[in-house]
Design a protein around this nucleic acid. Sequence first.
RNA 1: GCCCAGAUGGCGGAAUCGGUAGACGCGUUGGUCUCAAACACCAAUAACUUCACGGUUGUGCCGGUUCGACCCCGGCUCUGGGUACCA
Length: 1154
Amino acid sequence: MDYQFKDIEKKWQRFWADHQTFKAADKTTKPKYYVLDMFPYPSGAGLHVGHPLGYIASDIFSRYKRLKGFNVLHPMGYDSFGLPAEQYAIQTGQHPAITTEANIATYRRQLDQIGFSFDWSREVRTSSPDYYKWTQWIFMQLFNSWYNKDADKAEPISQLVAHFEKNGSAGINAVCDEEILSFTADEWKAKSTNEQLAELLKYRLTYLRESTVNWCPALGTVLANDEVKDGFSERGGFPVEQKKMMQWSMRITAYADRLLKGLDTIDWPEPLKEMQRNWIGKSVGALVKFKVSPLENGIGQDEVIEVFTTRADTIFGTTFLVIAPEHELVSTLTTAEQKAAIEAYIAQAKKKSELERMADAKTVSGAFTGSYAINPVNGEKVQVWIADYVLAGYGTGAVMAVPSGDQRDYLFAKQFNLPIIPIIDIQKIDNEADPTKEGHYINSGFINGLTYKEATAAVIAKLEELGAGKAKVNFRMRDAIFGRQRYWGEPVPVYFKDGLPHLIKESELPLLLPEVDKYLPTESGEPPLARAEGWKYEGARNNSIGNKSAKHAGEEASNEAHLTGAYRETADPRYYELLKKFSLENRKNPTEAENILWQLLRKDQTGFKIRRQHAIGLYIADFVCLQKGLVIELDGNHHKLNKEADDERTEALNYFGFDVIRITNEEVLSNANDVFEKIKEKLAILEDRELSPTQPSPVGRALKKVSPTGGDLEGAIYDYELSTMPGWAGSSWYWYRYMDAQNQNEFASKEAIEYWKDVDLYIGGSEHATGHLLYSRFWNKFLKDLGLVVEEEPFKKLINQGMIQGVSQKIHISTAGKSNMNLIDGLPVHTQNTETFLMSSDRRAEMDSNESNATKILYNTTEHNVDIRFVDSKTNELNIREYIKWRPEYENSIFWCSGGYWHKNEFHEFENSNGEKRFFTKPEVEKMSKSKFNVVNPDDLIERYGADTLRMYEMFLGPLEQSKPWNTNGIEGVFKFLRKFWRLFHDDAWNFNVSTAEPTKAELKSLHKIIRKVEEDIERFSFNTSVSSFMIAINELTDLKCNKKSILQDLVIILSPYAPHICEELWVMLGNDAGTLSYAPYPKFNPQYLIEDEYAYPISINGKTKMNLNISLSLEPKEIEAAVMANADVNKYLDGKTPKKVIVVKGRIVNIVA
RNA sequence: GCCCAGAUGGCGGAAUCGGUAGACGCGUUGGUCUCAAACACCAAUAACUUCACGGUUGUGCCGGUUCGACCCCGGCUCUGGGUACCA
């Protein structure tokens, strides 16, 4: 039978699934090999041909390693939390879990039909509670750890507490916040629990702090630095602004040095390592303190400006200081005369958006504060300026400006006429700064005459002696923000009590993601999780609730409230005592109006319970009916509030779900009964308020329940953290889960981790360079510090597969729509109000190069993408009929070619034209994407050629690591190759026909050439060249008419990683057991078969090859030279000249210098 | 601006250690088969030149090292990626 790829592929895919052929063993004597693909996000768009590229490479490698006798772990799963599903949920109301599920199904179907050898029994999904339980668990370990710089590793926070109890804060060398307290052991013990917790938060590896974040209003979330491009969100391209928010952060900076050093130990592409190095941004320099020269009024006394510099050696060239506009000393240092200028500058700098600042990078701006600082090494007074080229977030937010050595300082000095002092003898500073480190110092006090190295050491020593500075290493990398104001992510296993974060119990994991009515922030800007009803942590009840999920605890609480009818309201606990005091005082001293109204409202006279002076959030309502959610406010002399404040109260109360009616004191005093009736009416029409006493406060999340008149409800319910973890949380440890995916007790067992250790080969895109790949290394190092994993680096060898771009087809369409064209005397002519025209690319090019600008303007067109289905990829000819079906608005349009035009399916030829009748589009390489209509779907190709052809063709395209445009044109060549391979096993009538005869020398040579070649190629990940070699081998064997079983069987094994389906089929036809091919031993290369007696030496004269000469390989160079010189043809080329020299490289070449 | 990677026929690419540049595939051209088309098969295919044998040029550009350079060195140009007032 001919090669029936469809049946074969289906059959074997089912066989592999049914027999779990690729299940990795847990206990084995085989050496392990772990091949991993970067975690895919299952997007709704499905796969295009670019996606499987890396998977095919890793699959070939995995299959190859199995043949080589390794126990291979090659898993696949889904990074299934993330923005696209959530965006879709917002638009459609569809739960992201459902969308995700559907996307995964599509993804899986597409993966399966390519024939990957994944061990699906280990599949993981980050959005599954079984999985994110452990993401939350790792978060808890981070929370419970601090970084001990002396030990250079993370340690349990309990060790830190033990130290505090014994020695106080002395002797601790930690990576922590800047504002830590100093205390003795006794002082520590005297602190309240909350004070202690607040202090410990400054040390924890995951901690809360107010950070300036990239806030994207359109997405309603905070973005990581690498998710922001040029002031816009990478996803969606929405504007991003800076905003201060309380955020969870990860103290990745603790690991900065180890992350940097580790790069030298791993086999990754150099550009990728370089990106990480830049991102970490280590700079070695010094911290220098400049004392502020006090003003006449004494202001600035004792103030010090700290600067960071990498060129301490240039300190004598400092002619002014520049501090960031946001620097904390700006207001202190600004003199009265300069105040206006400084304020104006700050206002202007604030207004500038990120984008404008970037566009503006060349213009120099700044303002003088009026103050001076003193250079510690020479006592000179220098001016202190502010300028936005100094960034508040880097170093100390202040620089010592050395205009002779730093270009930005130089431009600044020129702009504002500040002095420029040369400090190195060979410095050339006439036109620009010269940052040289060569030469000897001048104008530099005690370092005059020294060289760079000597000077740097001398300056730092001097600074230390003066107490004015010290050597310091600075990192560009910032701690990573670890919260997203989003729904579709892991909940943070934290609740708040007294405004402080506490972990839930380990036994309560996973903290399930609650259901919400909408996937949007609340009206007050709280994250979507604030919408979850009854989603609260119930502290005191925990013991009785036991292991039940926290969501259940919340439900129970609200059920109970229903039973008792207890409508209760939340007061802000931070102000609870104060609020209680005020409300009691108010109650004791009511105004006259209040008193009158209270007599009418009390004791259920309205039919409902009314409370007075009751705290809600930060406010004390005059009267409130909690059941109906009605607040009655008395305005007048009592409150002395202006209208604005009243409105604010109303808004806040509305937010809590209350209606507010306002009554003036006069109304009550003049006619109390009318007011009473009005209130009764209002109460009658209002529905009962929903029993969800859980709305968060806009003033703070740390709410707890208090009774209406005060008094803490014991066993209170606490708020959970409402933000969720960022996308990188789940992917920062997933490779460990694959080692032991079903484990219910640990994220992975010790045995599994000790066996699999790390990823031997990791394949994926370089877009993860500063995100996933950095965070993963960070978490891995942390887990290692805790003794949970064994390797310092998780990904030993990494390969970036290149991007596959699409080829778009562009069409030129008249700009102004139906206004530009008419047909006059059979020629398209520009007039008004007629038809659109479309221009063939050759016509457009012709017009652009030959005709006047006026014509070009007249026939102005814009480029539009055409679906590539309507274009012949070889000729770029557009199928106009099909195109019109797709875009019916162009049904009556004119399709203008170089030799005429098409109109309503008729071609009108121009007179005397020899131009084209065909309508061409313009191909252009760009990103493959649905919106560009240039997506090539692997499903279509598999339908036409089969998975084996697709796999081999993707590899054949070119080097794995190189980016390249997809072009389907060559795929037939690969298909032909497979068919030719199939043919080797069959006679002319397609009957299976294999001979058991002994192979010939030539056949063995072909076989062993390919065995060695493929082995070498796979080991260096050069898959494209091995496909070529297969073609050569099959061509050779076809020429030899080889159908020897011993040759073909080995060939089946070595080809099977590339084209597994056809090989499985042939393997069985050759008489082997089904399913044994995947673990067959790789054929052993025998160099004996390649030994030659003769070699066709290329003979070159002066380096130019002229001819080949067969010479025995046993001859030595001298003999070869003699043989060559004796040859008649060689002498013909020499044309009588005597050679000056003859170079002979045995087995390589002969070169005659004439 | 800085850092990194790359540039080879009409196209994708090969040349693994400084040793025959253009393997393999696509496309194109010619041929066989066919009533015809498709498929399949055979042959040619870097450019220039020559009826042909052959000759000349040729791996982005300029120069160097070497018996010999796509490969090593120096200086540029262009393309792609990363990154940015980082002190």
